[in-house]
Amino acid sequence: MKVDNIYKEEKKSAFAKLSEIIITMASRPSGLIGLSILVFHIILAFISPYIAPHDFKAIDPTLMLQAPSAEYWFGTDDLGRDVFTRTILGGRTALTITFFGSLIALLWGGLLGIFCGLVGGKIDDVVMRIVDAFLSIPWILAMLLIVSLLGTSTEVLIPALGFFYGKGIVRVARAATHDVIAKDFIVSARARGHSNFSIIWNEIIPNVRDAILVEGAMRWSWMLLGFSSLSFLGFGVSPPTPDWGLMISNARGLMSFAYWAVIAPIVGLSSLIIGINLTADAFAKALGIDRSTKAPV
């Protein structure tokens, strides 16, 4: 019986690490709930076109604002479209756009933050003041401006959202880098004469990766909310594409007598956001990062 195995783990493959993290996440109730919601939404996004019972854009004036029934599970909206069909399809665009948007945010925010943290001095000062300046602009106004100038295509929305949600990541990545930068292993690498690139890649990234990933996961849920707000304002996806933000916006005037047309997309949107949030928190805990000690930016 060897107990000392706990002290002698071997280097693991990336896959083994990931599965271990997921198992740890799922071992907490909140993590399990978050993960299940998120996985449910992702699966739904993939299979919804094949399981949708009705055509999402089939308008039928005779079926206007029907209450939920065996035929139309979540009822119909003001144009007689099936709310269930539109709800299960409504997350696809939002999920895709924000997923790639947060990847972009992670990439540029993370790298710029690490770079600033490493070089410091004047360059750091200037870059950080620019980031601060952007942080002070109300993002929704800026987004509206961009969207109205360049249109609402995916090619515009992804980089624009990615840009606006990456600013916060710059600060987190920079702070995480500062934690590492004073350590002797960085000094040691500098004294050996490694290049900045090599120091970032080999010494810093492995140590700040976790913090940045967690931050990125949180940003994803915020971005989802932001994107839905854009749709709600009519600047996200264009009709008749089903989208939660748009559906809420269309049906909100009829709430008093056709609540079903609003409630379904609201439940869809909020459950996804809660799912991502819980998952990100569980992810942070599984990695041993305490988010509560870090102020959100």
Binding site: V187, A189, R192
Partner: peptide, 28 residues
Amino acid sequence: LRIIQLIFQNPDESLNPNHTVEEIIAQP
């Protein structure tokens, strides 16, 4: 840079916690 090398006080700080011993020694 090669002719002068440093050994630090605290090995917890001077070794990158995310590198294996092999990776650490491979660097120089």
